[in-house]
Amino acid sequence: MDISQYRSKLARFQSSIALFVLCLALSILSDKFLTPENGWNILRQTSVNVCISVGMTLVVLTAGIDLSVGAVLALSGAVAAGLLKTGIELPSNDLFVGFTLLGTIVVGLITGSFLGFFNGWVITRFKVPPFVATLAMLTIARGFTMLWTKGYPISGLGPNFAFIGTGWFLGVPVLVWIALIVVVVAVIISNKTAFGRYIYAIGGNESAAKLSGIDIGKVKVLVYTIAGALAAVGGIMVTSRLDSAQPNAGMGYELDSIAAVVIGGTSLSGGRGSIMGTVLGALIIGVLNNGLVLLDVSPFWQQVVKGLVILLAVIIDKVNSKAE
């Protein structure tokens, strides 16, 4: 085996190695790090970012980007919370529509899916760059969230709804189950289905994909719809965990999510990367967030450290892809 082969083998495991080294270092630096309770904390805290980042990975694989996930998360969560708390009153004919728990969740998910669909439609129909289209959606969804909540949090949503965010099932937090299901489904879709192959093909070489008969528009719209739906899943998770929909929820989540994708080794120019890489990327961010607090590192330094980690991940990725 020559060096370049060896290197590309190493590249495949770079995220796992990084996560392992990080965990090892933190267990040496703090005896509080490697405890079951702290492990569950990290998994619970990472689960929302994992869901969003899975959607982001699919988008990035098509050489796109979705900046609207944080805002879509906020709006979907707020819509679900508002409907659960007060329902809808139609003053014109004295009609009151109440919602069941399942009903609010479904409407929340539909909200996110629709916003994602709209992103995809604008991007494919009008050839708007994804960066611009989803940046516009970020602002639009933030605006609608403020309109819907009038700027105030919607709190006190009841124990049934809170079960999603705080409950346990078979010894594992419900939030972690949700993330696990999302990841398993996404791995199957991206590796075993024609749709998954199309995503990689489009990101790898769009004109070649078009010539081979792939309906590029359809695939892209579906990918952005999935990203929106998964942001909505994240919105329900965050809202349930806090027992409150915050008007400014999900602020900056798009950056955490892009960071997870990049650290996980998915190329921003599309066509190369994996869901599992992103999961590792999200875990690295989660472990880093947790570890820096455990060590009581100053908040100023935390920002610097996180930025450096992202930079390092991208540089390693660049070096490795050149080696290939």
Binding site: T35, N38, R241, L295
Partner: peptide, 10 residues
């Protein structure tokens, strides 16, 4: 909430 969870470990 997340920061507090981590602090409580330490």
């Amino acid at each position: 909430m997340e920061v507090m969870e981590s602090i409580l470990q330490a």
